[in-house]
Design a protein around this nucleic acid. Structure first.
Lengths: 253, 253
DNA sequence: CATGTTTAATTTGTCCGACATATTCCAAGT
DNA sequence: ACTTGGAATATGTCGGACAAATTAAACATG
């Protein structure tokens, strides 16, 4: 037997069922277990790792809750096709980006989602934002202005700005996608600047500030237009680091 | 003790841990356990229902996988704020609509999501659809044309049409939102026509066919425009059955 | 009285062993 | 070829025990 590769000592602070779910989730998103494949049988996992059936089963339930696994008595537990997962689940996004370079199709799809969602979200934000919402923007913009793009704090501020857009839209479904989308924003930009620092890309804080200014002015049309430009710029910036063929779809309106 | 209200005989086909997760998920989305509330302790559930701790714990892990619960040793298991759930999760959508009338804010938010997502998805579909994709549309349109709107089959066909849009967009993230969005489409329209049949609403199959025609013609701009009209019409139709104040946000481009 | 420390109580976390249940596989039997 | 009936195998459920973590209470100390 080749061994499953689960390091039982990796995260001593977490509960075991959580660590196992984390490990197995990574294995699945990174393709070690493909769609339709059976994952380790409970007794096999027990004998390989010495961890009890119960802890392993609880881990499997966590992934079943995300729609990634189906279990059938006697035939075992299998990975479901990817369209059953929720690819914007914060854990799935994290697993995808923390297990090495995510595939291009995934980064591209995330950008397309941002291009679909963020401009109308900015329009809603312009109509519904409260004064408290505006404070979120100001704080994020301040941090973006006075941090360097090579620092983590800049990327956190960038994520906070985009989170502020979704929060200010006051759409609860959009809010529930917030953690996933912001994780996607954070990882895509961090991935871009960390692995391929391009001295020519400048701090886009002024473009962000322009969106904020239209939201503060309660101008949905302007906010939508500037947000569209912002996402398009991010897409263009990423051109050098990934093999997108960007000729295809434009979401310009 | 008032009793938890879990009927241990309700679904003999399903495994117990699944039935419990289903029941508790319903309780949570319907507000019996509000955000931050503790759910029944493991030993309490055991003494109330006679079901073992293990089965109950596995059910809790399913909901934890959806981000709806957090557990801490000694302080118990609590419901997380709604922005941590994924409100487009197929189970969450189902629970929301099967437990009586969902709140207006939820239906409204789902319509807004459709208005954001479906027009650009139709544009992508126009650029990327395959011949096999077109067959999905034709089948759905045929059923919509020859079924009555009072039948379930019509609503299934309607959902299939919208599913075809998302499939044809060939964006994997969008595809992963498919089950949730289509469930939302199905339930919002079914909810509308079943609970408030309006003799004046006619079969919108021709509007659907017009979108299909633009997708088949590889015309992203036209597909987007007609899809926008389609979603706006659905929103308008629902005006009478819910208390939306539709004056607010428009997503017209 | 305020405050930090030790002790106890409570709830979830893990483990084990046993048996139940569902499904698949296979071997007879017709 | 088809059915039927068991054997094998994997997951599902159960009960009980103990571990670990966190909170709450009791206590000591300044």
């Amino acid at each position: 037997m080749v061994g499953l590769g689960f390091d039982t000592q990796a995260a001593p602070e977490k509960r075991k069922n959580e660590s196992i779910a984390d490990w197995l989730g990574r294995q699945i998103v990174s393709g070690v277990y493909a769609s339709g494949d059976p994952i380790p049988k409970e007794m096999d996992f027990l004998s390989e790792t010495g961890i009890s059936r119960g802890a392993y089963r609880e881990a499997l339930r966590r992934l079943a809750g995300k729609g990634m696994l189906v279990t059938r008595t006697r035939s075992g537990t299998r990975v479901t096709p990817r369209e059953n997962w929720s690819l914007l689940d914060p854990d799935v996004v994290r697993w995808s980006f923390e297990s090495g370079a995510p595939p291009d199709w995934y980064i591209r799809a995330l950008y397309e989602m941002r291009a679909m969602i963020e401009p109308p979200a900015a329009a809603f934000a312009a109509e519904r934002r409260s004064e408290a919402d505006l404070a979120l923007f100001r704080e994020a913009l301040h941090a973006m202005r006075y941090c360097d793009m090579t620092e983590d704090s800049w990327h956190n501020a960038d994520a906070s700005f985009h989170r502020a857009i979704l929060i200010s839209s006051h759409n609860p479904v959009l809010l529930s996608l917030q953690s996933g989308i912001c994780a996607a924003v954070a990882y895509t930009t961090a991935f871009r600047y960390r692995d391929m620092p391009n001295p020519h890309t400048r701090n886009p804080v002024e473009e962000h500030a322009a969106v904020f200014e239209r939201i503060a002015a309660r101008d949905p049309v302007g906010a939508r237009r500037l947000m569209t430009e912002l996402v398009d710029t991010a897409l263009l910036d990423s051109k050098g680091t990934t093999v997108f063929d960007l000729g295809l779809p434009t979401l310009k309106v």
